[in-house]
Design a protein around this nucleic acid. Structure first.
Lengths: 249, 249
DNA sequence: TAGCGGTGTTGATGTGGATCAAACGCCGTT
DNA sequence: AACGGCGTTTGATCCACATCAACACCGCTA
């Protein structure tokens, strides 16, 4: 558990189990966004467990008792809901700095599964303590509300995708969204490796993996992107935007 | 403004502009759910504006400044998001006791339109005051979090609808959901009048109005429901459940 | 009482993407 | 180096739903 040779992050914990939002380079996009150094310090006392989740493992599963929300420290997750009969819908992909588990608040149990798509690390934020601290630190309360609200807005956007857009528009929207989020984290907005399979993309976008694959091929043929397995390079981002905006027909 | 001859609710305001959650028959399903009488009393000071919205009018629109959330007192709303090019997606329908406007928190402006589908009445809950009161009344904070979380979960369900279910399954899910919510409000779960058009149902469910109409006719032919324009009677609710559960194929 | 616009139903036809099927590349295993 | 399995690509075919079109109905207003 304390094999903290994970080079990139070793400086952050300095041998302590306790994490340090104050020293985390995600603090501007994660839960502490907008807090003062003093306030972040308080939050640090709350986020006391960092946990590693291996690729393929669940951070939590639908039906298990809710007691914490999670911040993705590193890695990549999908969330999905499943029906009795086993069909499932990917409801989102989460990357560093994003918050997971808010679906659990409503009924004191999680309603979806959160599965790591690569070896990942998360910070545990016990909900009861978050509630308490929100009372002491109004700006934390406000920011947490914003995080939840943002999730609502994001899901509205997905409903739009699924409800009115056609296959290629959805995929263009998906790529542009990924690009933008990677960019906000200091990565290249123009080239990246997908962490999910075609099938997972399809599930998220409400289409079959074959259609995802075909659309990728089409985009490549049209010079919009270069695809090599999971590696994607956006070659004509305006072209993609045009496809995305073009839910005119 | 004070033509409070609106028979059903006149007893509630007794000539005062101030609303009274304490006396509201929706208090068990609305924002005050779970609060003690003393706490509800505090909330009452906050919910000081009740407003009437006529059928077709907007409670708020995307892009306008956010400063309050709203509780539906009576009536019926749809929320929708619209793209530049005018296509829109109905993201939800709201009835008495449900909360609107939480999408506005994230970026200090509303991101969707909330349109009354019949003459309606809403309670305004200024957000800044809700924030303050949440600090004083932890159970209010908790319940508000639950309300937001429930919205996230609801939207997950819609994503499931849109992503993996076929037309008749979606419509069955829609009817069962309406039935359940009406039932929770003391109305008959077996017969009701739709407040929205076929087109609005279709937009919500990601299908065309013709398909909605055809599916209604199919259900009727199969003896599952009786349809007479907006009037719906559920005749075989288990049959509907079977269709809904049957996203096996 | 007629006319009219918004809404709903139903039929005929078209099509985007699903389904079915085959083959290939990549990767870890033996 | 051969093997098997998973993920992906691509082609052929199918079908659920969209689209196009005509008409019916209902509540208005005049």
């Amino acid at each position: 558990m304390s094999t903290n040779l994970n080079a990139m992050h070793a400086r952050l914990d300095l041998g302590a189990l306790k994490t340090a939002c104050a020293a985390c380079n995600l603090r501007e996009i994660c839960l502490p966004a907008g807090l003062s150094p003093q306030e972040i310090d308080k939050l640090d006392h709350l986020v006391y467990v960092r946990r590693k989740i291996k690729r393929g493992e669940a951070l939590y599963r639908a039906g298990t008792a809710f007691d914490a929300i999670y911040a993705v420290r590193s890695g990549f997750f999908k969330t999905r809901v499943t029906t009795q009969d086993g069909r499932d819908q990917v409801t989102g992909f989460s990357m560093a700095g994003e918050i997971l588990g808010m679906d659990g608040i409503s009924h004191d149990e999680y309603t979806c599964d959160a599965i790591a798509l690569e070896d990942s690390e998360i910070c545990t934020i016990p909900y009861s303590q978050l509630e308490k601290l929100s009372i002491e630190v109004p700006s934390l309360q406000r920011h947490f509300h914003k995080v939840m609200s943002r999730e609502i807005v994001r899901e509205n956007g997905v409903m739009m995708l699924l409800g009115v857009m056609r296959a290629e528009e959805r995929l263009a929207a998906f790529l542009l969204n990924l690009s933008q989020r990677l960019s906000a984290r200091g990565y290249s907005p123009l080239e990246f490796n997908l962490r999910m399979t075609r099938e997972e993309i399809g599930s998220y976008l409400g289409m079959k993996l074959e259609t995802v694959s075909r659309s990728f091929s089409k985009f490549q043929a049209d010079g919009l992107i270069a695809v090599d397995q999971k590696y994607i390079r956006l070659q004509d981002i305006d072209g993609l935007r045009e496809i995305y905006a073009h839910h005119t027909r």
